[in-house]
Computed example of a mutant assay.
Amino acid sequence: MFTPTILALSLFTTTILAHGNITSPPARLPGPSMSSICGPAAVAAINADGTGPLENIPSNGSPACNIGLCKGAQFADNAAIVQQYAPGEMVNFTAQLPIPHEGPCNVSIVDTASNTMIETLLVFDSYADENLAQLPLNNTQFSVQMPVDLKAGQCMQPGECTMQWFWFGEGAQQTYENCVDFVMTA
Rank of each mutant, 00 (worst) to 15 (best):
E89W: 01
S35P: 01
E119S: 08
D77F: 14
D149S: 15
N56V: 06
L150E: 08
A113F: 07
L97K: 09
T51R: 13
Q84S: 15
A79Y: 04
P147E: 06
T116W: 04
E89R: 10
A42N: 03
V107H: 00
P63W: 05
T120S: 09
L135P: 10
V144D: 01
K71L: 13
T51E: 14
C70I: 07
S24W: 05
Q83C: 05
F124Q: 00
C38N: 03
L29K: 14
D129M: 06
P87C: 06
H101P: 05
V82L: 08
T116N: 14
Q134N: 10
G72D: 07
G31Q: 09
M90T: 15
Q145R: 12
C38Q: 04
L121K: 00
P30K: 07
R28L: 15
L69R: 12
I118P: 01
K71T: 13
F142D: 00
E55Q: 15
Q141L: 07
L122M: 07
K151T: 11
L137V: 05
V91G: 08
N60P: 12
S143H: 07
E102S: 12
S36N: 11
A95W: 02
M34K: 04
A95T: 08
V43G: 01
T23Y: 02
T51P: 04
T120Q: 11
V91R: 05
L69V: 10
M117A: 14
P26V: 11
T112K: 08
E89Y: 04
A76M: 11
A42P: 01
G153D: 11
N139D: 15
K151I: 04
L122N: 02
